[in-house]
Design a protein around this nucleic acid. Structure first.
Lengths: 111, 111
DNA sequence: TAATTCGATAATATTGGAAGTATGGAATCC
DNA sequence: GGATTCCATACTTCCAATATTATCGAATTA
């Protein structure tokens, strides 16, 4: 992952409404949720949410699929993985001594 | 990690100069680098860099230590780990089915 | 001297009203 | 019945106001 796309993803998540939307969509994997329902859930007008969804989409963190009148948004976990990998690579680049312990500590995250 | 501090860290890294500074400091672990040297390396005036370092510091991603006239900055890898953990928890929260494969893919990052 | 803080300016992001686009249901016309 | 029109819904785009962030010269502190 290039710095440039990492910055897009970091900036996308560095905003309260967008972070909340992303987390909501992760919780609703793999079904996703229509834009209107997301807007209601996070309490922002439809147009405001729409621009936030566009930012997340450009950052590769959500995907959109039209279903009849609704547009279903889903979290793109591959995008998240790419971002996490980028952050870890920052420490790993040729320096497993730094990265290995860090990675070891991550394992219990699924408990 | 609270969303609020996650947002601080995400925002801190979502800026080209700051991301570059952070990566530079990770490469120079565990010695760190004085502010002036960092400023020269990234090609930014001292005062501009200073405010960027303050942002990284508030986000818990770097630490500062005065050494005689210089101030030595170091990457705070624990802060990075906390951020990565936060991002992963987004998928893990009670859903190891999503997180496990993602985590498995991260392992090769140290190669 | 090395670095930070202050203050002013420029650039960028967030927000939401109003208008625009896409979809599909229901009434109307041949 | 099939096509057309009209309407409501679900979103998005456009645009302008407001807020936040980035940058750097000048003054300040350690």
């Amino acid at each position: 992952m290039e710095s440039e796309s990492a910055i897009l993803a970091l900036a996308a998540l560095a905003q309260p409404t967008r972070l909340e939307v992303f987390r909501l969509l992760v919780r609703h994997e793999p079904d996703g949720r229509p834009a209107g329902e997301i807007a209601e859930a996070v309490g922002v007008p439809a147009n405001t949410l729409s621009s936030h969804l566009a930012v997340l989409s450009r950052a590769g963190l959500v995907t959109a699929e039209r279903r009849s009148r609704s547009i279903i948004y889903r979290a793109d976990l591959e995008g998240l993985r790419t971002l996490v990998l980028f952050l870890l690579k920052d420490c790993c680049g040729g320096r497993a001594d730094i990265c290995a312990p860090l990675l070891a500590e991550l394992a219990p995250c699924c408990d």
